[in-house]
Design a protein around this nucleic acid. Structure first.
Lengths: 200, 200
DNA sequence: TAGATTGTTAATCGATTAACAATC
DNA sequence: TAGATTGTTAATCGATTAACAATC
């Protein structure tokens, strides 16, 4: 394997994995790309190509061994060495993400949250911001999630970079200024809503 | 105007609008696509083309009249007739979205939340599920947001369709079964995380 | 005028879809 | 064998980027 997997494909892998995990183990020892496509309402060729890229262990006529396919998906998604993330900003959205357990299925885990406001500190999962850098360095954290108010986002971004974080998932509408090697993914909920609304 | 605006462009419009709203009114009576692109770190031609599609009132050398551009963006995004949305599922994520006030800048407003669990009912914004249909019909709601557990998602989806909702923003990983004319936008946070993680 | 910026047409890039030989 | 499904190559589609004449 070790082929390059484009973002468009990467985005679909969690869907496949989740669906395969839900499938009845007895009934589906094998599953074909064709069948999976039909069940997920996706293009047949698209699924076939995605799976070929990720696994490539399909057998004509029978399809993929379900268990093996799950394993390959997990391997590409990073389940095998559980990618850890931290979050800064324990407002409503931050707390919702911290307590959302849907990431672990794909190998991601938000291991801690941080906030400056003592009211939001909560022993087991949300810590004071001063502890951020040390925590990240000690635990080799590479992914940081920003859910602070927009006006504090750049400052938190810089704190993250100082703490050796390489990927930032930004939930604020601020365009973060970062050096070349840092990856930023902006999550703009209003954008999604705009697209949905325009399609109606 | 009334040109067709592709989803890829639609997605960027809230970014432009938010940025223009933040700009100092005195300093920027006019702003050029070139300048905007530089400030937002986007492609110069991309911004120019987007703005031409949305407004087209740019003047060579001076650029766009800031105020006019804002107005055109709002008009396309729907601010002018404030698109209303409702949400079902008042768990952590649902509550975070209900109280998130960032949508209104773009003309979208989550006007009410619904839940079956009496513990989550909260007079001013979260109502019992039985009131859902009537509320939607009376208030001419066209957008529904699903933040219930996956196992209840299809059932809520059908309730929404019965209540004349046309666009569904689905935060569960379940592939919803809907008739032709219903638009579904799946928001899969794990997908975003997968893309980010793979780019590091 | 000179030159920055516009709107638009052409070229490139990437992603999706179609076609098809290979195979279990 | 016959036929469903695979992996892959070619064709199409849409989005981004480059090029350029028009214009204030």
């Amino acid at each position: 394997m070790n082929k390059y997997i484009p973002p468009s494909v990467m985005e679909r892998l969690p869907l496949y994995l989740h669906f395969l995990n839900k499938l009845d183990e007895e009934e589906y020892e094998f599953i074909s790309a064709t069948k999976l496509a039909k069940l997920l309402n996706l293009g047949e060729v698209q699924v076939r190509k995605d799976l070929a890229l990720v696994s490539g262990c399909g057998k004509p006529r029978t399809g993929y061994k379900r268990y093996e396919l799950i394993h390959h998906l997990q391997s590409v998604l990073g389940t095998n060495d559980c990618t850890k993330a931290v979050i800064v900003g324990a407002g409503k959205l931050g707390k919702a993400l911290i307590h959302y357990d849907g990431f672990e299925e794909y190998g991601y885990k938000i291991v801690a949250g941080f906030d400056n406001d003592p009211l939001k500190i909560d022993g087991k999962s949300i810590f004071p911001l001063e502890m951020f850098s040390q925590f990240c360095l000690e635990n080799d954290i590479k992914i940081g999630i920003i859910t602070v108010p927009e006006k504090n986002a750049q400052e938190i971004c810089e704190l993250m970079i100082q703490s050796n974080i390489l990927g930032i998932w930004n939930f604020t509408p601020l365009k973060l200024k970062v050096p070349e090697h840092i990856v930023v993914k902006n999550e703009n909920l209003a954008s999604s809503l705009a697209v949905l609304s325009s399609k109606i």
